[in-house]
């Protein structure tokens, strides 16, 4: 469904946003956790065909992302891809429902469920960051895609709606690649593969259900599940023992700062 092989993305000469990333998602969900600026969004953008791939390949439903055309089975919450014209929220939903060959009723129902009815007549730039993020999530999830790419879906979203969204993602029947910089709510997503992304490199996978059993330690530790080789040192991820339990921190960023 989604196969990423030895993927490197270079935005400018000498600056790789992604370095040799490998990931396969054939069934279920995959969650990529990493600090801000680690390359998580670039990974999603590469799968969407929006990032300059300098090496490797991305295949979506078995087709190279550079040559895939008119395949409506993938959707995303990256709002940038919904700015085909200057549109109000209601028009954006109608237009993209038509372009996806879907019924806008499901999107409108989700708009109601997330108490966003008041945004329908607004321009996108009139929405708050949280409302924009929720609108992106709704557009991603409501057209019955088989593969959903979600960039920081909980970011800027208030607590009660985060919980509703987590439930929605847990029940989502298709495949999901989700990235986030925080550990909160991950335990509510159900069975998923977990990856860490640091400085453009992807580490994993782990079972998300093992999240509470994962620890991180400075340096290389014997028997580690994986060693995170970063520019500020090496860290080992271990099971059931180590310097700091991963779930003791709200984000990987803070966790690495704590043990560094």
């Amino acid at each position: 469904m989604l196969e990423i092989d030895d993927l490197s993305v270079t935005y400018r000469k000498g600056s790789d946003a992604l370095k040799g990333v490998n990931l396969k998602l054939h069934k279920g969900k995959a969650v990529v956790v990493g600090p801000n600026g680690s390359g998580k969004t670039t990974l999603l953008r590469a799968a969407l065909g929006l990032a300059p791939i300098s090496r490797g390949r991305v295949r979506v439903f078995g087709i190279d992302v550079q040559s895939i055309r008119t395949d409506t089975r993938l959707a995303t919450n990256v709002l940038e891809v919904y700015r085909l014209a200057r549109l109000r929220v209601k028009d954006m939903i109608s237009l993209y429902a038509e372009l996806k060959g879907a019924d806008p009723a499901q999107s409108l129902k989700m708009i109601d469920d997330f108490e966003l009815g008041g945004t329908l007549s607004k321009w996108i730039y009139e929405l708050s960051s949280g409302q924009q993020k929720l609108l992106g999530n709704i557009l991603a999830l409501s057209f019955e895609p088989r593969l959903c790419l979600l960039d920081e879906p909980f970011d800027q979203v208030d607590q009660s709606r985060r919980l509703r969204l987590a439930q929605l993602l847990r029940d989502f029947p298709g495949e999901v690649l989700l990235n986030t910089h925080e550990f909160g709510l991950l335990d509510r997503l159900g069975e998923s593969a977990l990856y860490f992304m640091i400085e453009g490199r992807l580490f994993g996978s782990f079972e998300l259900s093992q999240l509470t059993r994962l620890y991180i330690s400075r340096g290389e530790v014997a028997g580690a599940l994986v060693t995170l080789d970063t520019s500020y040192g090496k860290f080992s991820v271990t099971l059931d023992r180590g310097e700091a339990a991963i779930t003791t921190s709200t984000s990987l960023e803070r966790l690495l700062e704590a043990v560094a």
Binding site: L48, T70, D71, T72, T76, V81, R83, L84, L99, K100
Partner: peptide
């Protein structure tokens, strides 16, 4: 609209 177009030509019927 360039990102939207690049996406739409791949992942919508456009």
């Amino acid at each position: 609209a360039s990102p939207a177009l690049a996406y739409c030509f791949r992942y919508t019927k456009l």
